[in-house]
């Protein structure tokens, strides 16, 4: 806080000036010495990796792995997404149909890079945890 601002507040506290006068004086000072109200949000650390952890219950999967830990670079996901442009139109229609039959309503041709960016941005603040009694799956961004 600046000296001028302090003096005005002292004068107000001592009753030498009224509230209106203090307000006028403070507004005349403008932003000088005002506490910083930085509204710009610091840039969110760009996520680099997507981590998928699977903890399987031994009782449910006696022969399977006990723990799987996969770290996928986001750059690799982005690069992999571009492979969808290689799928011919006829093939993508068949894939969409097959996915739809399985109950997954995803249109591969409509899946754009912006959608992936939105999804990845959402994952920076989100942690997905799935516990179905057979194991525990966690997906989070790093």
């Amino acid at each position: 806080m600046s000296e001028n601002r302090k003096r005005i507040l002292e004068l107000l506290a001592n009753g030498k000036i009224s509230v209106d006068e203090a307000s006028k004086l403070l507004s005349a000072l403008g932003d000088e010495g005002a506490p910083r109200t930085d509204t710009t949000v610091p840039p969110v650390n760009k996520m680099k990796y997507l981590r998928v952890t699977v903890d399987a219950l031994k009782s449910q999967h006696p022969d399977g792995p006990e723990k799987v830990n996969i770290r996928v670079p986001v750059a690799l996901i982005r690069a992999g997404m571009k492979f969808s442009s290689l799928i011919p139109k006829e093939a993508s229609e068949q894939v969409d149909k097959a996915l739809c039959e399985k109950g997954i309503n995803i249109n591969l041709k409509n899946l754009k890079e912006e959608d992936l960016e939105t999804l990845l941005e959402a994952l920076t603040d989100l942690e997905v945890e799935i516990d179905d009694g057979k194991g525990h799956v966690t997906i989070h961004a790093e």
Partner: peptide, 9 residues
């Protein structure tokens, strides 16, 4: 770079 697959059994 950075891709890791760790399977523990």
């Amino acid at each position: 770079r950075g891709l890791t697959v760790d399977v523990r059994k």
